[in-house]
Design a protein around this nucleic acid. Structure first.
Lengths: 333, 333
DNA sequence: GAACTCTACTAAATCGATTTATTTACAAGA
DNA sequence: TCTTGTAAATAAATCGATTTAGTAGAGTTC
């Protein structure tokens, strides 16, 4: 890899570096037509590409933003990434995607790396366990937007689902179909992951609205591997649930796997609704009713909030934006 | 955002920039214990973080590699990204993921951007339509590894599935179960995407091995939206297929959607095998037999090949590495 | 005590761009 | 003829690190 620099171009075109730089930045008024042509030719001939590293050292802005996702394997994460990327691509930015794997330690490393690399801003699916780090970014006025999960009292712009409403949509549907013994299962709430807590909270509120007492035995949280055990616990209750709300796509998979294994019929033996749309929802037997997150709008909104911070356009927005999910009514309930 | 630089640290610790730099690079033998402590404290107090941009301007290596995926929405892409990222994370590299959306134009922009940003190497799922660009990277001796798709005559290290064998696994299984009218459906081969061509080729070869004549009516390629039409064509044949090999996860979804819609029973009305494992394979009714790609091994191998090129370790390897898939035998066939 | 070696440090060059201040050449105006 | 103004171009400073070459001072050796 030979390295063609601005100096080479300048020599080749028999002008100064400064003039070449002006050319590169399209300030043609500082040079004659003839010079412009010479530089153009030199760049062409040498196949010169400016070193963006050197450029951004001087210019500060790197036109790169980071996205730190909690777990890249979630369909929701991928959809968000893709949409964020599309948004920023249009605005001339690149995105650096990093995968924190739900590990605060990894999240910390990535955020620090990204900052050290001088990205212009970061969209984070926060693990929630790096409060000091979040605070430092805030006090440094470094552009940050949180996605999917809220961190209290930090006043950082956040885009997330209206999780209460998501649960309400599901519970309302169950009730309409005549179910009263309704269980909810989410993945672990070990680190107080807000969407999960809110979905449980929304579930409770929705039940109360319908005058149905909340039965704590019907609320289960566990990591994917233990969900099957939790389901067994549910069905061993003397009053087993007739309906199950799966808190996300992973839980839904586990629930369906369990049903399959135990030869249980949906919705006759037990009705099911999942939060998060899944690829197979409309051709599974039965088709699965789901609560769909508006991933693209969420991504666009987060991207826009970040871009506003980066460009210092619009007034400061540190609020939590909650988008409404929709119910995709099918036959599992 | 105040910017603490090495100069600030030097002043604060009352030493020269050079010494601070030595400290940052852990060359403690060039300073006294006392100086080391002073610098350590200064860095701590000022909360200093070195500017990696400035560093890499001098050092050349940016410890960043790019991954340009064809489409980030494919589960296979995500698995690969995740594994590549894990591999490089261990070696102190960051990865920049870019999504080409199967558009050669976008791919070109991204590769050029990545190179301009001086990444140390790139792993590409090539669209195949940027031959000049690929050649230039090759002649610049820029570290590149292709993933998933081969580009003929370029002599660029490539990691991909043994696609012929993938089809063979499926066809062998069909034949063992007594099926002879076997169809294959893949997504569009518009741009000569090698895995798709190879899967079709492997399907033909496998049939011939079993002495079954190849029926061209049984071979269909189409974009996702038209697959349902192609399926109708298949079942309107006077000799409709008894078995269908779905060329990837997207096709499999479409096939299952069609079966559901037309109330067709698997495997009685038609047997199905999919290439690519899917999340619901083991709890669908019936459970779905799939041909599984060893994504993690493929990612590790690609990452290792790239790292070798970057570090110039090992001898030059420009061969095509083909990994073997495995059959996950279930009940759809 | 001259010559040499080490240790602990520093000054200055460097990476490849951008940007500011300055210079040159030439034409217009008084 | 002597300013003055302007267009075109350049030199030099800058960004924030690394790295090379060099130096001061203490200790060793003969």
């Amino acid at each position: 890899m030979k390295a063609i620099t601005i100096t080479d171009v300048a020599k080749h075109a028999k002008v100064s570096k400064s003039t070449v730089s002006q050319y590169l930045n399209k300030r043609y008024e500082y040079m004659s037509e003839k010079t412009r042509k010479k530089i153009e030719e030199a760049i062409e001939e040498l196949n010169y590409q400016p070193n963006i590293i050197a450029r951004s050292l001087k210019q500060k802005s790197t036109f790169t933003v980071g996205v730190v996702v909690a777990n890249i394997l979630h369909t929701f994460s991928t959809q968000i990434i893709r949409a964020i990327e599309n948004y920023f691509y249009k605005h001339g930015f690149q995105i650096i995607v990093c995968n924190a794997d739900d590990q605060p330690e990894k999240e910390k490393n990535y955020i620090e790396m990204l900052r050290a690399k001088q990205v212009d801003g970061i969209i984070i699916f926060p693990t929630g366990d790096n409060l000091d780090l979040y605070k430092r970014m805030k006090s440094d006025q470094f552009p940050v937007v949180f996605m999917d999960r809220a961190i209290e009292e930090l006043n950082i712009a956040t885009v997330m689902l209206d999780n209460h409403f998501a649960s309400k949509l599901a519970v309302d549907q169950f009730v309409e179909k005549g179910y009263e013994n309704i269980a909810i299962i989410t993945t672990s709430i070990f680190r107080n992951i807000s969407p999960r807590l809110e979905r449980i909270q929304g579930y409770k509120e929705a039940l109360e609205l319908h005058g149905i007492p909340v039965n704590l035995d019907y609320i289960k949280t566990a990591d994917a591997e233990e969900i099957s055990d939790k389901l067994s616990e549910l069905f061993e209750l003397k009053n087993p649930p007739q309906a199950i709300l799966a808190g996300n796509d992973i839980v839904l998979n586990e629930v369906l796997r369990y049903m399959k294994k135990h030869n249980m019929n949906i919705p006759d033996d037990v009705a099911v609704i999942g939060i998060d749309e899944v690829s197979y929802a409309d051709f599974y037997t039965p088709t699965i009713t789901t609560v769909n997150q508006p991933a693209i709008e969420m991504a666009n909104q987060a991207a826009q909030l970040l871009l506003n911070q980066i460009n210092k356009t619009g007034k400061e927005d540190t609020s939590v934006h909650r988008l409404k999910p929709t119910l995709l009514l099918r036959n599992s309930c």
